[in-house]
Amino acid sequence: MPVKGIAKTALSRNGVSSYVLPCHRVVLQYCNWGGSSQGIRDLLKSGQLDTIARQRESVVFEIARRSGHPKLSFKFAHDKSKEVNIANLDKSEIVRKLQDNIQSSGSELFKWNHKVMSSNESVRGIWSPLHVSNENRFKI
């Protein structure tokens, strides 16, 4: 057997020649009675949510009435989800939270201590001291 293969799956590169929004569902949960839901009740009454939903046609908007503090739950691709507490926030702040999180990838935030993050190899390669021409080498 000359050469065998190793099974791999092709890596996803969302945004290379096609882009699919990772966020696919938003649940807006509010309470009809509690004071902390005042902002979201204002938002629902104002009809501003209709405009947002029309702009974001690729996201399913769901409104749920439940007791307790209001929250926004976002569902992302690959079963990732995020919950945002919007208790005591006013209308404009809730809209900002909504727009911010719809654009998010749903991944956990993390610190990256390197200059480049890429799934591709460096085009130039790594500098090697062993390939420097003879006269320029370090002499002991």
């Binding site: 791999k8 092709a10 890596l11 020649s17 591709n120």
Partner: peptide, 11 residues
């Protein structure tokens, strides 16, 4: 458009 890691698929 996905990246195929062909260089890792040889044994």
């Amino acid at each position: 458009s996905r990246k195929l890691p062909l260089d890792q698929m040889f044994q």
